[in-house]
Amino acid sequence: MAQSERMIDIAGVHKTFVADHGTVTALEPVSITIKAGEFISIVGPSGCGKSTLLRLISGLDQASGGTIALDTAGRKRPVGFVFQEPVLLPWKTIIENVRFPLDTAGVSRAQSDKIALDLIKMVGLAGFEKALPRQLSGGMRQRAAIARSLSDDPPILLMDEPFSAVDLMTRDTLNDELLRIWLSTGKTILLVTHSVDEAAYLADRVMVMTARPGKLKCIHNVDLARPRGDETKLDPAYHALVAQLRRDLRTSGGEAH
């Protein structure tokens, strides 16, 4: 994989909202270049603009200024998005949900079924293809949402606090699975999280953001060995980084956990 390729180029991107009592700055100008295949975590307290940044990159919202360039060769759907909640279509089965991006892009059923079944297996939901979302647990639904976001093979995966609604045990498992998926697919991943542990454990680089107004405070390189696992969590360097991240957040007056 060409690690030097620039996948996402963000230059001076900012966002302001017009509210009743004047304009609110959701995000002060941010600039960063993200390489292809990189795993970036974004941590920060509520209101630091981390979700806003993700929505701007995905094109769900328009920036008030600055430029975002994606090196995705004019694909119609350059990014996959995993929301905080699964956002599955409740009337469709798991396989229909995973297949949904393909079905709506006119991919043949034989091909889309094959892709969907592979992804369902990859996220560990084999046997639940015909189940409806309401029949699954929160963690399983989130796995299905991840499978759906990968089904039309976007080069970039944006994840907005994807595991905040699941319990801690499931969260650890899902984190390890996410790393496995990342290694096997080579996606460029941006993951927004409240948890500094999660951010340090997963990423190549951690963006620390602070609130009111939302801005990028600093970026840490994570030099922990890959593949990561239980040993990583015993590594003093990991703990030093987590402590550093906490300090970064605390001095800014934010309230991360």
């Binding site: 995905s58 094109g59 769900l60 119609k76 759907r77 990014v79 998005f81 929301f83 909640e85 956002v87 279509l89 009337w91 949904f100 991006p101 709506t104």
Partner: peptide
């Protein structure tokens, strides 16, 4: 209609008809 489903439709670039048939009407 759940605004998050609107986000999903926008993200997938669904046509007006796909939106109606696949998301808005069933919901």
């Amino acid at each position: 209609l759940d605004p998050k489903l609107k986000d999903l439709a926008k993200l997938l670039g669904l046509s007006t008809f796909q939106r109606f048939r696949q998301i808005e009407l069933p919901s």
